[in-house]
């Protein structure tokens, strides 16, 4: 809908963000990334290229990793969103976050939230195989300019193996 000045009116939408229902009014041209950062104050999710090429903005929508920079917020009305702020528990880091720390899987840290979100999806994604090559391919939408790929991969591999073991128990 347009108002009398021919400007699109805000759209009301509800998002479940990190387990909490949030309601916001946004113009249609606001992407999910900006809605999370600028309107909900969740600045953990990073804006890198803003064109779906770097993966810094990766969040989970209904459990799937997507580039939040290419997703209009209004399209996700009613969806379940997980950002990096939703990974840690009250007292503990998530196993994956702990593994990133343990394996020194970052330098500057700017890509880390996106890497963590993509990797979090991978923990429960059984379609992607277990070899280093398969995991690296599945993570290729997340660019790390510092080149911490090797340590990112080892952090993911270790956590994924633990996760698979835990799932069998």
């Amino acid at each position: 809908m347009m108002d009398s000045n021919d400007t699109p009116v805000d759209v009301r939408l509800s998002l479940r963000v990190n387990g909490q229902m949030r309601q916001l009014d946004v113009p249609p041209n606001v992407v999910l990334l900006d809605a999370l950062r600028d309107r909900l104050g969740l600045t953990g999710t990073k804006k890198g290229c803003d064109h779906g090429q770097c993966g810094a903005c990766t969040v989970l929508v209904n459990g799937e990793a997507i580039n939040s920079c290419l997703a209009l917020a209004v399209v996700h009305d009613g969806d379940d969103i997980t950002t990096v702020e939703g990974l840690a528990g009250e007292a503990d880091l998530s196993p994956l976050q702990a593994a990133f720390l343990e394996h020194d899987a970052y330098q500057c840290g700017y890509c880390t939230p996106g890497q963590l979100m993509s990797a979090t999806e991978l923990l429960s994604n059984r379609k992607v195989g277990t070899t280093d090559a398969e995991v690296a391919e599945a993570m290729s939408g997340n660019i790390c300019r510092c080149g911490a790929y090797k340590n990112i991969l080892s952090a993911i591999q270790e956590t994924r193996q633990q996760h698979a073991g835990a799932a069998i128990d």
Partner: peptide
């Protein structure tokens, strides 16, 4: 094609 995030959408 593309990346996992893009293919998901």
């Amino acid at each position: 094609g593309a990346s996992r995030q893009l293919r998901n959408r």
